[in-house]
Amino acid sequence: MKRALRAVPAVWSVLAALVVSVGLLALAGAPPFEALVLVLDGAVGDGGRMADTLMSWVPLTLASAGLVVTFVAGLWNIGVEGQVIAGAIGATWAARTIPGDGLVVIPAALAVGVVAGAVWALAAGVLKTRGGVNEIFGGLGLGFVAQSVATYLIIGPWKRAGIASTSGTEPFREEVWLPTVGGTRLSPVAVLLAVAVIFLVWALLRGTRFGLRLKAVGANPASARLLGVPTEATVLRAFALGGGLAGLAGAVLATGIQHKLVPAIAGGRGFLAILVVLLAAYRIVWVAPIALFFAILSVGSAQLQLRLDLDSSIGGVLQGILVLFVILIGGWQALYRRGEP
């Protein structure tokens, strides 16, 4: 029963948001149900669209999975966006620098992306444990730094010949793109990575000593320390793991989706991941479907303009409504629980 209750924010928020969205679409003069069906159709209507949706799902899921690890440890690791960018920068460096074919360069690029994301998150971790800087501020600050570094690299050392534009680097040579199948943009490697990461994080939190320590530190760091949990080491490992997964998301974005580095490579997915994890109530098994929901919304909402000629910001409005309902319904629940004896 408790479990079901805890899952409620996601379900009710999504439902309520849908109801309000229908109302808003009707107000905007659009056929609301047709609009929602179009969004769905635009995201999963055929193989190619499903492929695009899955490829949007992968980085969001990876970043969210990383966040689950840090959130469970009670760390407000909201610098994910920066960690995704760091991962993309790392992967771009590898793709541009390391010679050889895809079999060598792609794994290297993904690995460098993981390391870069981990290092970026560890910086926030060390700032917290050794510098007393709250990880929210450290993470956000480092996010701006990562964004600036990416922009600098794109307009400076990695610029296209004769051009100074934040548009992006020259595309990588095709052999270091994540291989795709069936004439779509689907990379099986990327999807497998995301599935494997979900399973690994699930297993880690469920059945390992490290997972237990994370939860202990998350529940009460002081008692955990008294009970002999190496708090600082656990915190830093959580950051490294969370950041590494965010970095992997960035590496997939660079090698599998954009095929180059662009300043907006993270595209807000780091922030969206926070929302995914909050909706999932920190539970990894819920991350996959909730991330899929957002991927569908994001990929499919282009249809609103393509088919119905609706303003392109409607997709963003739908997302905003959802966020509001998460707050609202979460708040009601908290109130209701407090009212209980």
Binding site: W76, L278, G330
Partner: peptide, 16 residues
């Protein structure tokens, strides 16, 4: 949470 979500909202609002 509310602070965080407000932040997310601000971040997501960029494209709207």
């Amino acid at each position: 949470l509310v602070a965080l979500v407000a932040l997310v909202l601000a971040a997501c609002g960029g494209n709207g």
